[in-house]
Each structure stands twice: as C-alpha cells, then as structure tokens.
Design a protein around this nucleic acid. Sequence first.
DNA 1: AAAGTGCCTATTGTCCGACAAAGTGCATTT
DNA 2: AAATGCACTTTGTCGGACAATAGGCACTTT
Lengths: 258, 258
Amino acid sequence: MSETELGRFDRIKVPSAYEMVADAIEREITSGRLKPGDQIGTEADLVRQFGVNRSTVREGIRVLEQSGFVRRETGRKLFVCVPRYRNLSSRMSRAMIINEVTFRELYETAQVLEGGAVQAAVERATDDDIAALEENQLRAESVVDDPIRLADVDTEFHALVARSTRNRVLELAREPAALLFFPTSEMICRRVPQGGSRMVAAHREIIDAIKARDVERARTWMFRHVRDWKRGFERAGRDIDEPVERIFPKLSPGASFL
Amino acid sequence: MSETELGRFDRIKVPSAYEMVADAIEREITSGRLKPGDQIGTEADLVRQFGVNRSTVREGIRVLEQSGFVRRETGRKLFVCVPRYRNLSSRMSRAMIINEVTFRELYETAQVLEGGAVQAAVERATDDDIAALEENQLRAESVVDDPIRLADVDTEFHALVARSTRNRVLELAREPAALLFFPTSEMICRRVPQGGSRMVAAHREIIDAIKARDVERARTWMFRHVRDWKRGFERAGRDIDEPVERIFPKLSPGASFL
DNA sequence: AAAGTGCCTATTGTCCGACAAAGTGCATTT
DNA sequence: AAATGCACTTTGTCGGACAATAGGCACTTT
C-alpha cells in the first residue's frame, strides 16, 4: 500500500451513490436541460427517481448546494439557480488566507486586474454605469473623513468599475482578490486617515477619464490609486511581504449588489 | 409573505445543525487552530463531540469536502487540507459556462491576465521556472503538427508562466478563465492546424524575453500570442460574441500539476 | 370581495438503529 | 522479513421515525 509510484495502474475510484446523485443533477444543469429557476423535485421525488435512500439524496444535495447549482429558499423547495459567484469567490478568498498569501501578491494582482478593468470600462461603460459611479462619488465625498465608510465606498467603486466592463469573466477573476481588498483598505483607512482626499480625487479622475473615453488617463490614475493603497499599507507600519491577516472576510458590504 | 421591502425587520435565518457543524470545523481551520494535514476525528468522534446524529455530521462533512477544507482519502480518514484551488476553479468555470459568457469576454480577460502574468514572471522567474518552460518548449516543438497535443502543451505553458510569477493570487485569479482556455484552444488547433508554428515561435520569444528580463518584449509577444488565439477562433468560423460552448471542462490535463 | 385567521398536509431537518463493504492493524505462517 | 489471514474499525447506505415549519385551503371578519 505504499505511495510509491511503482505499478502501472491508476488508483481506482469507486463513485459513491451520493456523488452520483450530485453528478447526475449537475449534468442536467450544465447541459442546459435544467434551467435556472426550474424546480427540482422534493427529496422524496429524488428518492423515487434515483432509487436511493433519502440520507443519500440529502448528502448529494448538500454538495450541489455548496457549489451553488441548487438553492433552497429558506428551508423550502429546491430550485436550480445560476451559481452566483459570491459564495464561490468567498471560498476562494478563504483559501487564499489559509495559504497565507502576502500583501505584495495582492497588490501586484490588484494592479493587473484593476488596470485591465478600468481599460475595459473606458471602452464599454454605459450611461447607467457612469451614473452609478457618479452616485458612488457623491457618497465618497460625503464620508471623506470617515475612514471606515470610505473604505466601504471605495470597495464599491472598484466593483462598479468592474461591472462597467460588461465582462463577467474579468469581473469574476477579480472578485476573490477583491474580497480581500476590503479588510485591508479598512485597516489602512483607519490608520492613515489623511489618505481620504487623495482617494476621492483619484476616483474623480478615473470617472472623468471613463467619461472622456481616455484610456491612458484612466490607467494612469488607477495605477496611482492602487499604488496609494500600497503606500497606505506601508505607512500603516506593515510589511508588504507579511501574510494577509487571518481576518475572515465577512461579505464585504460593498459587494452586496453584485 | 410578499417579497416587498415593507417592514423593518430582516429575514431570520435559522441555522441548521449540519451547517453549524460545518461552520464550527471551518472556523477551526480558517483560524489556524486546525492545520493542513491534521486529522479530524472519525464520524463517530464528531458525533460525540457535537452531540448530533451521524447523518447530520455527514451532511456537514459534505459541505466542507465540497469547499475543499477537508478531504477524505479514498474512503478513509478525514484530514484538513489546504484548499487546492482546482476544484474551486473548476466550479467557477462551470458557473461561467452556465452564465453563457462569450469568447470576447474570455479573450479580453486573457489579455489582461496573461499580460500581467508574463510581466510578473519576467520580474521573478527562477532558474527552475525557466528550466520548466524550456522543457515545455521542447515538447511543444515535438508535437507542433499534432493540434490536440499542442493545445495541451500550450495550456501548460501558460500555467508555467503563471507559476513563475510566484504570485498565488494572480495564479488563482487566472485559473477559472484558464480552465476555459483549453477546450477553446483545442477546438482552434483542430480547425486551424497551420497556427502551430506561430504558437511555438511566440512561446520561444516569450521564454527568451523572460530570460533576458525584458518586460516590453515579453508583453508584446504575449499580446500577439493571445491575439493569435482569437484570430484562430475567428478563422475557425466562430463568432466571438457567441457563448463559450457548453463543453464541460474535464480537468484540463495541463493543469494537473498545479 | 378582500383581508385576516386557523387548521391540515407536505416537506424538511434530525434522530435511531442496522448492515455490508472496504480499510487498518495485528498475529500467524512461510 | 515478507506474505497471508483474521478480527476490528469506519464508512456508505439503508429503513423507519418524529417534531417543526411552510404552503395551501377553508373559514371567518369587516
């Protein structure tokens, strides 16, 4: 039973019943035969259809629920749903925390993703997107001296920029990291309160650049804005090579509208 | 029971026992009190500790298993593990498929992420990373006329570049999208076989640029390489605004070493 | 008639007890 | 010492059971 790689055969994985239940339902969904909004039968129905025990069905359902394919509205009926990214993203965030990723990794990724996002936003933001950004800016100006609220508004600002890209893949790619931005921003804002006006000014420039469809200006100011974030981190006396704290990222309020 | 937002109270969510079991164990892990590799007791142990039924414990375990915090080695003991990103990423990929993201979204994101990755790789690739890239290049040259194998090697190439960044956040951010690259690349390679030599040439330039620590050259060639991918897609007669097919991304072979 | 109330039933969350199959560890055999 | 065999542990699955809650329906109230 050694773990050595002698022997020519692969390990045999015997699928268990609950896995087969989950897979069967998942296949119906990913193949499109079950559409978001469709109801899945009751547990009893599934017991009849699959011919397995209810405990087995329930274990399978837990798997699907966890992966977001199926949802139970407050204890009642099961229905198919488009996996909302948030629970997946938040799991990824937690995975990153456990892996003790450093602020440097987070910063570098933020530069790449926020830079790319703002560029795409310049190319495709609609009037509605811009209106939402302006509305966000108003709130930012009104809480410029309240570090915690400002961090929250900033998180929302970046989510709005990402949404303006009309690119769900990009939006999704940044979300796990973005969920870690907030606790960090909040810490920074608490300890370096004088950064507020710089932040609001940067947002202003970015919004104007998006309105003017000026890619270079947008990228430049986003770069500065994110760099300020890193400088705030350093000024707060932290080492950028230290692991991001084990702060459990409670669904950051700024992301609640995603 | 209307869904209107009249009323001043929030919905009450009664936590169920299996959720509390899962949360309790997850908290031990995210807080670091349970470390990767640690064993969690047997189901019977957990039954004793939590004072709930075994079925309940099992449902909780399914949740944790699914989110990757615990693992069961072929039917046997439960142990804590660092969530490997792959199952999370693959769920995200499937979520994207269900959301019918378009090739355009995928392409645009690829430009952002691969461009960012290669830049970071230039800055931080080690000799080992470069050796791995060279080894990959040898294989690429040997299968240049075998479209399917080439697509596989290409997928691995990009994963190796990402790994060279020594940035796990960035590596993670690109993975869900990257899992969708492979089926697409494969389709392209099958239908536009003449692209093989261009691909190998681009890889060569990128590797050389990384070795020479030449950021601009690396970015330029990565940009061209990804653009070629899009052109191949178009030349294969596909519309870049059509949803990525409902191909279930079987764990792409190139990602197996992540 | 529309709205509010109370009851009935379906369904879920949990529990109990049980068993076969497969993994583990130990003693025995060669 | 290595291979074999056996007893014990643990998991996966099963059947049945019950309290609590949600949904639906009939009934009352205004």
